[in-house]
Nucleic acid binder design. Structure first.
Lengths: 145, 145
DNA sequence: CGATTTTATATTTCAAGCAACATAATTGCA
DNA sequence: TGCAATTATGTTGCTTGAAATATAAAATCG
């Protein structure tokens, strides 16, 4: 770390941004086989875990707003991965349910996190520790002031 | 880390992605004062360090391709932060030079990395270690296979 | 009960990212 | 030398992200 010459490489923000995109690039060929984009894969991670969700909940879990989610979920609906419907109780709420077609992708997607584990060159325990550190940092950044 | 129930939170790729965006959000009001977007700020980090660069070099340093850089650099040129010109030696090469206006932003931007350091709740030494870990992970991911 | 506020989602607009393709300059080699 | 391959950048089309704004349903309160 060079204190005098503050290069790109010494900026944690850039490392996080660049590393995140490097993982996207590694995932892309795997996701292409499933006809998914990376954010769509994240939505499915949620739905594989809990069958259904609302836009509000997805927005909170993924920290994406409706301007991102609404068109993305419409695309996913049109490719048959999920169904969107207004809640009967409260018509403001849009419920998103995974379909059989969406559920079928779960087993085919298992290789995706596995590929990161493999290519990382790190042990599971180290990856878990790194994950914890990053989540703690994210919480600090979000809750600051 | 739940092995049975592989939730979003346990995915390192998501933590990196979400943390990166959390930092963008924290930086946004600071960058707004400079009329910069985050990727534009990254370009300036390079140019503050080395006065000029080429699209090829910026592409390599930032891992962004010409489809992203060309329009972004044109916007930065039209806001007076830099000048683009074809190299005389090799007309394929576009050289990007920082202007006085671009250079003036350097001191005003010092608060930006400082704000991350402050809000992170971590010591400089820990941040440096985390940066190193992430860069190593990125290298592994990029060089795998 | 009716007006106001809040909540949930949608729309619009702009700026990335990136793949695929296009173009023009330069290199290299038969 | 001449032409094919390579290199550097640009363009197009599609998908995020996110702010600002709009809309409609539900909750709240006098």
């Amino acid at each position: 770390m060079d204190q005098e010459r503050l290069t790109l490489d010494s900026h944690l923000c850039f490392s996080l941004y660049a590393c995140s995109r490097a993982i996207f690039r590694m995932y892309r060929p795997l996701l292409d086989e499933l006809n998914l984009t990376y954010p769509q894969y994240l939505v499915l991670l949620v739905l594989w875990d809990r069958q259904e969700s609302s836009i509000k909940e997805l927005s909170h879990l993924l920290t994406l707003d409706s301007g991102t989610l609404t068109p993305m979920l419409k695309r996913m609906e049109s490719s048959g991965l999920l169904v969107r419907s207004r809640s009967v109780d409260d018509e403001r709420i849009v419920t998103v349910q995974i379909t059989d077609k969406g559920r079928e992708l779960q087993s085919r997607a298992e290789c995706i996190p596995a590929s990161l584990i493999e290519s990382s060159g790190l042990e599971l325990q180290q990856l878990g520790a790194l994950n914890e550190t990053i989540r703690t940092l994210m919480d600090s950044v979000e809750n600051h002031r």
